[in-house]
Design a protein around this nucleic acid. Structure first.
Lengths: 142, 142
DNA sequence: ATAAACCTTAGAGTTATATCCAAGGTCAAT
DNA sequence: ATTGACCTTGGATATAACTCTAAGGTTTAT
């Protein structure tokens, strides 16, 4: 039920130092301490950490993540309208990110689909040249 | 057709310093220089910059972005197979990010849909409490 | 022809996000 | 009761990604 810092770190692939850093910065405090002061993390703490790592991996800063977490933890201090407003703002940001990723992925797929995959130089991949004429990889958002 | 550093920076919402930094780090060199040495960026340079900014905003590091750009620019040096391999790897990473974002968004949508949006304390948002019981915001990936 | 608003380089400083280190306490196994 | 693997804190160090400063050159408008 409870993990020491090293165990939780290992489970989610971060370092113990990172967990101490998150605690110092208000993102994730262990729900308990042992008598001798060891940090003890619960399953819920682990879920919070997963949330932090997922959010981080898709480009949210720790400051943004902290805002969402404190919203969830300090609900008493917020009106429903405030919650809804912030949450909807984040949702819009996420939708934008998803669209950007999809455009990104489509452009890479064209490249991959067209690429023969063999030993010859990529210079002669005709589609690569087509993309070039059309602004290369980067002209997707035109 | 060509922009000075300040003009391009302004168009895409970054600083001139950032563009010099990207040049120094091999991400984006202006395609020309004026007689007096001023950087002159083309439309294609602008598209490359858009690409960089989009990739950055969805969590790719400058090192990763540089790798994709140099793939596009130094095609001569790569075999088709190499191109396909790297591109498919990036595509898989993008798919993962998209899934994470979608899970993230779904969890926020539940919260938002259920939240009355009025003045009363969010503490009494029943769905918030339900989410709590189920591991809060973070239990989505269970 | 001079002021304002650009631009140049080289290098120092800043912020976010960790990561490492030193000196020491705790715990389980021998 | 001691070894080895944990853990504690506080503070220094590291890395990515900018951001700023100093000293000066260029361009455009008045």
């Amino acid at each position: 039920m409870d993990y020491q810092i090293g165990a939780l770190a290992k489970r989610l692939g971060v370092s113990a130092d990172t967990l101490r850093f998150y605690e110092k910065n208000g993102l994730l405090a262990p729900s308990k301490r042992s008598e001798s002061g060891y940090r003890l993390y619960s399953d819920k703490d682990q879920q919070t950490l997963s949330f932090i790592l997922r959010a981080k991996s898709v480009g949210f800063s720790l400051a943004e993540i902290k805002e969402l977490i404190s919203l969830d933890q300090n609900k008493v201090d917020f009106a429903c309208g405030d919650v809804k407003e912030l949450v909807d703002l984040k949702r819009a940001q996420i939708q934008t990110k998803i669209s950007e990723l999809q455009a990104f992925e489509r452009s890479l797929k064209v490249l991959s689909d067209a690429c023969c995959g063999g030993d010859e130089s990529a210079l002669n991949c005709s589609i690569l040249q087509t993309l070039e004429d059309d602004g290369g990889l980067y002209g997707i958002s035109k």
